[in-house]
Structure formats: C-alpha cells, structure tokens
Design a protein around this nucleic acid. Structure first.
Lengths: 154, 154
DNA sequence: ACAAATTGCAACATATAAAGTTACATGAAG
DNA sequence: CTTCATGTAACTTTATATGTTGCAATTTGT
C-alpha cells in the first residue's frame, strides 16, 4: 500500500524553517523538498491553524515558526495533519452482522489498537526541539564547519 | 488511506470453512463474504501454497482446511498473504541525502519499527483455534440453539 | 498607482494499490 | 461430454496521496 509521508514531510519542513531566520517561502521549501509549493502549503495549513507556524503574504512573506519547539511533539504535528490513519491493514467491516467476522474484528481490533497506541505514545515522547538537537549532532558528526547547504542533496 | 482488509477477510473465510465439513466452494464463500469468487481464490492462494488449506477442482470440489488450527497463528496467515505493509504512514525517502530528513527518518523509523513489531507479536499470540473458540463463545451468548446461518447477515 | 512577490484555494491530473469483474483454460465427477 | 469447480490473466473500479495549473487576495517596493 502507498504510504502517507506527510508527517515525515512536514517535519522535514519544520527543521528547515528552524535553521533559517526570517520567513521561508513555499517556493524555497519546495525546492529543498523536491516537490511543489502547493504541496507545501497544503500540508502546512494544519500547522497554521494550530498556531505552530505563521504565514504571511506578499513580498518578503513566507513561513515562520510560531511555537516553542520544546513543547510541541511529533504527535502534535501528526494531529495537525488531521490524524490520518496509522495502519495500512484493517477490518473488512466495522459493524459486521456475521458473528464470525465479529470474532475476527475483535481479535484483530485489539492488536490494531495496541499498535496504534504504542506508535502515538512514541510520537508523543519526541519534541521538535529533540529532533533539532539530533540534527545538530549529525551536523557535528559530518564535520562541524560545513554548512547544511553543502551537505543537502540538490 | 484505504486499508488492506485481506487479513480480516481471509480469517473470516477460514472461520467459515472451520464450521463446515466437506469442501466449500469459492462461490459459497463469496456469497457469505459479499464479494466475488475470484477475490476469494486470490487471497486463498497464499494459504494453499503454505499448506494451510487445500483446493480441489471439479464437481464436489472446493476448499478444505488442511492444518491444525491450534498451531497456526494470525501472523502465519498474515505471512501467507505476503507480509503486506502494516503501517499507513512512512518516511518520504528511504535513504535521504538531506541530513534533516535523516534525523526525521531516524526518529520516525524507530517508532514505526516498534509499532510493527508489537503488532506482529500480537498476531503471533493468537491461533486460529483461539479465534474458533471465540466464535463458539459468541454463538452461545447469542442463544446456544440457534445455528450460525440464522444469525449470519444476508 | 502599479508591478512584483507571495499565500490561499479550487480544480484537475497522475500514480499506486486494493477490490471487483470478465473471460477462458484446466481438471474432476457424473 | 456436460457440468461444476479452481487457476489465472487482463481489465475496470475506487480511494487516496501527490503533483500541477490557474487565479484571486494581499503585501511590499518603486
């Protein structure tokens, strides 16, 4: 099944914004992410509604971070995307008339819920600030003097 | 995202087969599952390859169980479907050149792996026999005398 | 005032995968 | 030899993420 990579994408965007002072345009972000500006705006809309970022129109406009990175978790970002479904497999029918399918749903549903809960809990343990710190660590490992732009793939 | 319900479906099929002696045709299963016989054959193919079921052509043919239900787990069935991906979300790129995306992949990837491992482990704890026992329990709760056919939705 | 830059958004196109359908070959039983 | 069944390929449908185009709205610089 095709995987939804919006969470991965939006986190990448946030990290780019965090390493840039002043607004970043969708155009710039799209180049760095190798995608289309409209896609950027689309996945950022949820974050704007929640106040994690601000956007400004016109010349000199663009996106800026508007939250304390140490208080926003990956789970918050996931929620800002509208809580898309986490699992690629699921029950055939939600409220089946067939008793057999009810038994199947019950067994699978429990496993599904547990896995979803674990994943959400893990996402809730990681803040954007922690992600940012990891980036700094990786930059140092790659030779502290080099700038991100030198390393970033075209 | 559209969820893959083949596991749910094939378990439903197995439970139907377990409550029927003699072969069951794809046609009958399809009616009970409200789908197409070809779909049944498709998702049963993996189980046949692993020897969990047998199929026979011609008049009087159909599907029969060919395994000890107490030794086959939901995880085995899942494997027989070809281990389809469990998660609906994932990383944008698997081996990104961008350091920022590497940091994102690292954080998300760990959470993803843990959730997948938990789900697989849960599936591995439930045998087909346990599912069958749950069906019997539900049948009793619905009034022991009634047959499955009376309860099964049309 | 006007031109340029930028977001906002709707509408449409593309890609991918599950699910459903059709058609026909193969084989077994009466 | 007819009928019933599976096996399978090819095609259609559906759903969803992603990509693209076009244009209105808004802000800034000249």
């Amino acid at each position: 099944m095709k995987r939804d990579s919006r969470l991965s994408g939006v986190l990448h965007i946030v990290l780019h914004m965090a390493r840039q002072d002043g607004p970043v345009t969708s155009e710039m972000l799209a180049r760095q992410m190798d995608t289309n500006p409209v896609v950027i705006r689309r996945i950022m809309a949820g974050l704007r509604e929640r106040g994690y970022v601000r956007s400004e129109k016109g010349r000199g406009g663009g996106w800026t971070l508007a939250c304390d990175l140490s208080t926003v978790t990956l789970r918050d970002i996931y929620a800002a995307l509208g809580n898309p479904s986490l699992l690629a497999i699921g029950n055939r029918t939600e409220s089946p008339g067939c008793l057999l399918e009810q038994a199947v749903n019950s067994a699978l549903g429990q496993a599904f819920q547990d896995a979803e809960a674990l994943l959400l809990s893990r996402l809730g343990e990681v803040t954007l600030a922690m992600l940012g710190a990891d980036v700094s660590r990786r930059l140092r490992a790659h030779g502290g003097s080099r700038k991100l732009e030198d390393i970033h793939a075209a």
